[in-house]
């Protein structure tokens, strides 16, 4: 019996050592794989949502967190984001009232993935699903102002955002300037300063800082070269 007693803990320790060794070997193999090789599982929201039996909100949260990690990984490696637009589209279809994937996802698509059309589609989808929220027309106005330099459309979106509750104080001022067609550099500086002030991660903050410095130096070229 004593011998049995000694054998079991011995085998247990051996199993644990084996486990750690195999895990380390597997991790080592993973480290040699092509960076950013991992794929996000992104089924069609139309089929996925009913299968989540009422837990679509949690699924959207977890997908958003996974998307943030995906962006972080690819920013540090190949700076390619082939699944970003689809992931954001799925997260926002699972929970159309979850604003962060539209807002931050829009920034990622625009400035990291360089997919302005996908960013605009995402923000327009958000504005349609959340007609009472100022944030999405505000971000669309910002895109048309800073990147597309389409001041008429920018004014259109900002006018809409300015009528909604909770909008920032600067919006009516921006609309007035757009009507007067003046102070574009000042408006751009205010917008980027606002992004810098409210940024919740380093990549967005450094992007905003870069743009503020560029505007202060007098360069008119935007981050997309538009």
């Amino acid at each position: 019996m004593k011998q049995d007693g000694l054998t079991i803990p011995g085998l247990l320790v051996a199993s644990l050592v084996g486990l750690i060794l195999v895990a380390a070997l597997l991790d080592g193999r993973g480290a040699h794989a092509t960076p950013g090789e991992e794929r996000l599982f992104l089924p069609d929201a139309k089929y996925l949502k009913p299968m989540l039996i009422g837990f679509h909100g949690v699924a959207a949260d977890l997908l958003w967190i996974r998307t943030v990690q995906y962006v972080g990984t690819h920013v540090e490696t190949d700076r390619k984001f082939p699944q970003l637009a689809k992931a954001l589209n799925l997260a926002t279809s699972l929970d159309p009232h979850f604003l962060e994937p539209y807002r931050f996802g829009g920034l990622y698509l625009l400035y990291l993935a360089r997919q302005p059309q996908a960013a605009v589609s995402l923000l327009e989808k958000g504005a349609a699903a959340n007609p009472g929220r100022w944030e999405l027309p505000h971000d669309l106005g910002r895109y048309y102002y800073l990147e597309a330099h389409d001041y008429a459309r920018s004014r259109e979106w900002w006018e809409r955002a300015a009528t909604l509750p909770g909008r920032p104080d600067y919006l009516p001022r921006f609309v007035a300037r757009l009507y007067a067609e003046t102070d574009h550099r000042e408006t751009a500086l205010e917008l980027w300063s606002e992004i810098y002030r409210t940024a919740q991660n380093d990549s967005v903050r450094s992007l905003a800082l870069q743009e503020i410095e560029r505007l202060k130096a007098g360069s008119s070229e935007g981050p997309l070269g538009l």
């Binding site: 909100g57 949690v58 959207a60 949260d61 979850f98 962060e100």
Partner: peptide, 11 residues
């Protein structure tokens, strides 16, 4: 996560 903390906790 980036934003949405209260929503995620509630969900």
């Amino acid at each position: 996560s980036v934003g949405g903390e209260v929503k995620i906790i509630k969900d």
